[in-house]
């Protein structure tokens, strides 16, 4: 089967709505629904490897949860885990958002949602920082290893400090660099922004949103029956 292409807007909408639904719906239902929904969506998009990884994480957390529930003294940990596990489907979908689409595509998607420009730029810069951070993370850990100040559990705070301080300084420098990169390319132009990557909503996009909405409505009906 051919992997379908999903408009990033769909993923953004789902990621905004899903977490807030916990306020209205029964925990158990939405937990299962989101899991199935996210898994199906990832499979349709052909992201099988990612799906497998997140299913494993999900399974592992649930496993630990059931174990902790058997032992009275660490029940609190279990309750924490069950909250944590609810975030996994959303994180999985968000991770596709960051990995599959480049920042220009995300920028266009947000623009079509008529989010204010300032917010769009802020979000895009944040998203841009994630891959940069990933790259720099490996440089820093490597250089800590070579300096002989690698992470040790004996002095976790000190180790963490060595790691986090250069990061903070990098952030400050990066903020300036990113601003410069945007500004010299006309990010402050008052014209209506156009998009090279903008894609029309396809049947698949609509279908995904309809299924998502139907699930939520179904949940509400079910809760009140």
């Amino acid at each position: 089967m051919k992997a379908i292409n999903i408009n990033p807007i769909v993923l953004i909408i789902v990621n905004i709505i899903a977490p807030s639904m916990y306020m209205f719906l029964s925990g158990k239902f939405i937990q299962v629904f989101l899991l199935v929904f996210a898994a199906a969506l990832m499979a349709l998009m052909g992201r099988f490897k990612r799906l497998a990884i997140y299913l494993l994480i999900y399974g592992a957390i649930m496993g630990i949860y059931y174990v902790t529930m058997q032992i009275k003294s660490i029940e609190a940990t279990g309750l924490f885990l069950i909250v944590l596990v609810q975030c996994v489907p959303c994180i999985a979908l968000a991770s596709i958002l960051v990995s599959k689409y480049n920042s220009a595509q995300l920028l266009s998607a947000l623009e079509t949602l008529h989010v204010p420009r300032v917010l769009v730029v802020a979000v895009t810069i944040t998203l841009k920082y994630i891959p940069t951070f990933r790259r720099e993370f490996s440089y820093i850990t490597e250089s800590m290893r070579l300096r002989g100040i690698g992470f040790t559990w004996k002095r976790p705070v000190k180790s963490f400090q060595y790691f986090i301080v250069p990061q903070l300084f990098r952030c400050a420098a990066l903020a300036e660099e990113v601003t410069a990169a945007g500004l010299v390319k006309g990010i402050d132009a008052p014209m209506n922004r156009s998009s090279y990557f903008e894609e029309k909503f396809t049947f698949a996009d609509v279908a995904v949103l309809v299924v998502f909405a139907a699930g939520l409505v179904g949940g509400i009906v079910w809760k009140h029956m």
Binding site: S103, A104, E177, A181, G186, I187, Y196
Partner: peptide, 19 residues
């Protein structure tokens, strides 16, 4: 890092035009 706003070559070249 200050040169490129996106991480894709095509996106980078059209970025100013979109703006």
């Amino acid at each position: 890092r200050s040169q490129f706003f996106t991480d894709n070559t095509t996106a980078e070249l059209v970025f100013p035009m979109e703006n």
